[in-house]
């Protein structure tokens, strides 16, 4: 959705490069297992797709002659370190196994939960949030939210399916969107363009 928006409008107005780069980092850390494990064709295709789209978005925002001029660097002020450092620390302490790949995987789970924050902060500062941006954020929130339903199903049907790190992170990630979803639903009902209160 985001790539379509950027390509169609030749603009990344209202999009946080910080959030996009954090997602690229999340996918790198999580999908290292592309090199040493195979689950299914679907799984592999989606992992490669996520990596490719994340990097393509970052490339457009940083290097495309036209698109990069629409990036509002002054407003996108969230500091990487405030998200990366606590997640790295937590991953070192709270993990299933203390190995490089497992710690990086756990780090990616924690980081994904909070990676939307720069985007949410940027949107709060944006007067006119365009529909594609609002829809993109809503879809991103719904994506992990729908996982919760799947986790409940798997918990009920699969033995040994206990995933506290993933579950708590996923619920926290979805909760971060609660406020956004509230205003998104209000504006959608009133058929108005999304506006977040300052």
């Amino acid at each position: 959705v985001l790539l379509l928006k950027i390509r169609a409008t030749r603009s990344c107005r209202g999009i946080s490069l910080k959030t996009q780069e954090l997602y690229a980092l999340v996918f790198i850390c999580r999908y290292l297992d592309l090199f040493y494990s195979y689950i299914s064709l679907y799984n592999t295709v989606m992992k490669v797709t996520y990596l490719a789209t994340a990097f393509s978005i970052v490339r457009y925002m940083r290097f495309d002659k036209v698109v990069r001029q629409t990036y509002d660097k002054e407003q996108d002020t969230f500091r990487y370190i405030f998200l990366i450092a606590p997640c790295a620390l937590l991953a070192l302490v709270l993990n299933h196994r203390f190995s490089p790949t497992e710690v990086l995987w756990t780090f990616s789970i924690y980081l994904e939960a909070v990676a939307i924050l720069p985007q949410l902060v940027l949107m709060q500062r944006t007067q006119n949030i365009d529909n594609l941006t609002a829809n993109y954020v809503a879809l991103l929130g719904a994506y992990r939210g729908f996982y919760i339903l799947n986790w409940i199903y798997r918990f009920a049907t699969e033995k040994h399916y206990r995933q506290w790190i993933v579950w708590i992170s996923g619920v926290a990630q979805t909760a971060l969107y609660a406020d956004f979803f509230y205003y998104y639903a209000l504006c959608w009902k009133a058929n108005q363009r999304l506006q977040l209160p300052a």
Binding site: I39, K47, Y50, H96, W105, Y147, Y161, Q163, V166
Partner: peptide
Amino acid sequence: SRSAAAKDEL
């Protein structure tokens, strides 16, 4: 491993 089950998720 306890974490193996989640590795089929994206």
